[in-house]
Design a protein around this nucleic acid. Structure first.
Length: 422
RNA sequence: GGCCCCGUCGUCUAGUGGCCUAGGACUCUGGCUUCUCAAGCCAGCUACGAGGGUUCGAAUCCCUUCGGGGCUGCCA
């Protein structure tokens, strides 16, 4: 979250007036409230064993009834209780759902109603005395004065239980937090995005070279839109423009292509200093450079010519690699091409025309090559510069040739042309 | 099974009764430009799940239906 630029202004690490913020440090609070509910009759001890519950649920299913706690222990006599106790049973604390219904307004779905006959009594405390999520979140909401509960739509149906706890705590409905249940982000195969489905580890995105602001921008657009046609949105604008009300209620599908498009846009929008700062770790990590000042200076000069050519930061590695190797290695296709007779001839002529060039800049290089290859040999630019590109950069795909040659330097260019000739 | 949520181009979306013969973006296809690859520019393909209503008029309101998803735990 920090890497994404997402911060919280209250909670673990930063503190705040309603701590402690770690659930493990609040166990006593939950226990106290559970006991209060017990005392007030909002909750009761349930002695049913897991096996018994399982059996009854199964029976309900077979009878085609809604499975759920049947309320067996709702009103136990003291005789029954002591019987269970003498058997050594440890009770869980279960919340009593009264008759009626729970009605609330979800900020993005509107009014939602749940009839309580479909909301069985639920467990607040395990037999070992540890609290359940349902208890803990609700208690924390109230005690920490939470104003908005924004979460995945899978929690929608647990909201009545949460509200039940608020009520048992004596909170007026006007003081309940506002609820908004966000739609899921699905993978391309129509299943909820998860560990087994798609690249969900945020570390993967960082290693690939996605910019945090690009990810935030893209994610914001999944299920939300500013209302007009703008899509390239900065973090600041996002904070400014975002409203829960404009969040869509339907699930969205994750689209890597769109993320890449946005990432490319964000990369192109970087100023060189910033671009350099972000690209360097990739080059160092890949051992393209070791981090020397002169290497960094060369990278900085090279960045402008590759900025609009990469989608992910990681691509600076193959793009700039040719600048930092003693000798280029040809990939298969390039090796084949450079070996052809025509190509060999081109390289030879190029070398001859380049040798007299002493003022080694891309303008001079270009005019020398155009003079010898285009005018001299009558070649099409494509056929003329292709072999030179391969000889110099090692690949038929590279940054702009003349600029690349300028950056590489005269000596290295000439020697690479020489060694390309068989 | 029951309850709940959701349903506009392939994808993300705009759209809240007439401005919609449905707009934008990404993808895809074709073209221009061009030293490769990109970027940029232009053009094109493609959508209101279906069926009924309501209305002078519906993507927008109502009903039904189909489809997708979630929940149905001493998980969160």
């Amino acid at each position: 979250m920090k890497w994404l630029g997402l911060n919280w202004d209250e909670g673990p690490e930063v503190g705040g007036p309603y701590g402690p913020y770690l659930q493990s440090q609040r166990l006593e609070v939950y226990t106290d409230w559970a006991n209060t509910f017990l005392k007030n009759g909002d909750a009761y001890n349930c002695y049913c064993s897991t096996e018994e519950l399982e059996r009854r649920r199964e029976a309900q299913r077979e009878a085609n009834q809604a499975p759920g706690y049947d309320g067996k222990c709702r009103s136990l006599t003291s005789a029954e209780i002591s019987k269970y106790e003498s058997e050594g049973r440890k009770p869980v604390i279960r919340m009593r759902m009264p008759d009626g219904e729970t009605r609330f307004t979800d900020l993005i779905r509107g009014e939602v109603v749940f009839e309580h006959k479909f909301v069985p009594d639920f467990v607040l405390m395990r037999a070992d005395g540890s609290p359940l999520y349902t208890l803990a979140v609700a208690v924390d909401d109230v005690l920490m004065k939470v104003t908005h509960v924004l979460r995945g739509e899978d929690l929608l149906s647990s909201t009545p239980r949460q509200i039940r706890v608020y009520q048992a705590m004596g909170v007026a409905s006007s003081d309940f937090p506002a609820f908004a249940h966000l739609p899921f982000v699905m993978g391309t195969d129509n299943a909820k995005l998860s560990k087994r489905n798609g690249e969900v580890s945020i570390a993967w995105y960082r290693e690939e070279g996605f910019l945090p602001e690009a990810i935030c921008n893209y994610l914001a657009l999944l299920g939300w839109s500013p209302g007009d046609d703008r899509e390239n949105i900065t973090m600041e604008e996002l904070v400014q423009l975002f409203t829960i009300e404009r969040v869509n209620s339907s699930p969205a599908r994750f689209d890597m292509k769109k993320l890449e498009a946005i990432n490319g846009d964000k990369i192109r929008a970087l100023d060189i200093e910033d671009f350099l700062k972000r690209a360097l770790p990739f080059l160092i990590e890949a051992k393209v450079i070791s981090g020397l000042a002169e290497e960094i200076a060369l990278v900085k000069k090279a960045l402008p010519i590759i900025q609009e050519r990469i989608i992910r930061l990681k691509e600076v590695i193959p793009m700039l690699g040719f600048l930092f190797v003693e000798q280029v290695e040809f990939d298969q296709e390039s090796a084949t091409r450079i070996g052809e007779a025509d190509a060999q001839k081109v390289v030879g002529v190029a070398l001859d025309s380049l040798e007299p060039v002493t003022d080694w800049n891309h303008t001079q290089i270009e005019s020398a090559l155009r003079g010898s290859l285009i005018d001299g040999l009558g070649l099409k630019p494509r056929n003329a510069f292709g072999p030179v590109r391969i000889a110099v950069t090692g690949s038929h795909i590279s940054p702009p040739l003349f600029e690349s040659m300028e950056l590489l330097g005269r000596e290295r260019c000439l020697s690479r042309l020489k060694s390309a000739i068989r």
